[in-house]
Design a protein around this nucleic acid. Sequence first.
DNA 1: CTGAAAGCGCTTACAG
DNA 2: CTGAAAGCGCTTACAG
Lengths: 339, 339
Amino acid sequence: MATIKDIARECGVSANTVSSVLNNKPGEVSAQTRERVLAAVRRLGYRPNAAARRMVGKRMNTIGIADRFIENTQPNAYKAQILEPLTHAARTLRWDVLYYAGHVTGGGFTAFLDGRSDGLISFTGWIDPIEVNAILASSTPVVFIGDTESDQAEHRASIIDVDNEAGAYLGVSHLTGLGHRRIGMLQGPGISGNRDRVAGFRRAMREAGVADNDAYPYPSTDWTLSGYYTAIEVLRLPRSERPTALFCFNDALALSVLHAAAELGISVPDELSVVGFDDLIPSALSSPPLTTVRQPLADIGRRAVEILVAIMDGDLPRDYREIVAPDLIVRSSTAAPAL
Amino acid sequence: MATIKDIARECGVSANTVSSVLNNKPGEVSAQTRERVLAAVRRLGYRPNAAARRMVGKRMNTIGIADRFIENTQPNAYKAQILEPLTHAARTLRWDVLYYAGHVTGGGFTAFLDGRSDGLISFTGWIDPIEVNAILASSTPVVFIGDTESDQAEHRASIIDVDNEAGAYLGVSHLTGLGHRRIGMLQGPGISGNRDRVAGFRRAMREAGVADNDAYPYPSTDWTLSGYYTAIEVLRLPRSERPTALFCFNDALALSVLHAAAELGISVPDELSVVGFDDLIPSALSSPPLTTVRQPLADIGRRAVEILVAIMDGDLPRDYREIVAPDLIVRSSTAAPAL
DNA sequence: CTGAAAGCGCTTACAG
DNA sequence: CTGAAAGCGCTTACAG
């Protein structure tokens, strides 16, 4: 690869003249020299070395997306729906995007806190709290998507998240409004947001005058296999005992419930109402189409970039947070309970 | 961030002693000094600067995934199904993965050919040939997933791809074997593989003694909207003229056809047989479940990493290529034509 | 076993 | 308008 010295030699100028041309320093280089340098740059296919630029304190102009690949083969619609608008926003603001997927061992993506990117956007729910703290300790500007369990993040990082409590309240109120009384909640794993969604669930139940029955928030460790098995277990209860409606931590879980219900010959929404959370694209096409609490995922992705850039530019405080409002999308997986 | 000098000062040794400890130089540092250095590293949360290491000619131990985000909100199952095993393989071999998504303007991801990663894996079908050539010119080791239109790549890069001709032949032979005569092919956009799939289509038709009718390979520019509209157009033909079977460039297109058929009230497979290509996860769940030509996407992702690493280690030539065999997966979207 | 020096490719004051 | 020098954080011969 050609270096700045090669260009300089080629043009009979010094390296810093080349640098001035490349960095568009105003009025420092004559138009003639400038042209000569640019021609040589094209001719030799010169490309400034990113590592060297970073060394002298320049930005990489790169945003890192910190994530951890999950060992499943299901494309994750939730992330995809955030990632696309996020990347688009970065492009618009002229920032490059680097998607980091580190080793599960060896500190995961925290290995990337080494100057390769200027700031980070992190999918909190997928990040180990230890790694969250490592990010914070590195003092890399960061925006978390989704609330974090880390107390430290509370004051030292920016967070964008949907109003989880309000969203759950919306979804469960829809069910109580339909006349449901026995409502179960399939909880998510211990990732951010679950606690608040459980709180919203309880508030809606309370306001509807339903006894705050501890039995119904079923625990669940994830939304692939164990979610499905939990659903099967719940749905195998005799009809007089089983909930007439299930509020699910997310759409993936709700889709598992639909699947489980179909297998057990339980008709949705006639015998069981199901409400999800997220509004993934596939949820509109399920059988039946899913009633769900929509997160404005595209807005979240876009805003994450805008906030991070603003923080790096010093236009927003490092602990800036933004909570976006959810919507209820009523489709065909919910109905009044059968008598 | 702490630097190597900070550690050195902290321990009362020189910077190169610290470096020796960090790089595990055998028998160069006393066990005692070593411990002292390591303790300081932990205490100060020191992390070697990647840019500086790269500067002195060390590897980043990073594989770049070159891609271009497409402006649609559909999560791309094809890529996801390759990416997950690819990342997993990289992890196993102790390489980090960086997913590059550049600006559409400004040279796309070629901006990343600046020393940030040691080698590249590129989704050929999504890359502009100009960018392909830029990658080649940079002399960065690269493995292309899918054949490229660039003649230069033929001799200067490694390629892993499914046998597109054989796959199409498999899919279309299945249709002719069922008794179909009027078979249309919905072509893909001008990306790699389409030409070979058309060739396989024609060979199967020829071998079945069907006249090589030019009318049937319908052109299509992409598999989202225009694929759907092409399908609608074809299916609106009077039944006596329209194909009894459609072989599609990929599953995404085939799913559009299923959608279009459902809208027009055309029953699949009774009135129309449909065959896809890829075998995406959603294809097993469509209505009806899709008959398709399976690409071993997981193998492709895994092998891409293994090949790239072997090339970087000098164990495989830079133009190494590997062609993997496709399978026919028969589900319920194909049947004998109605009389 | 440990240290001083040079150099990787770039940019930034600072002279001229 | 152009050039010489210093320095970013690291590693690698090379002395001692």
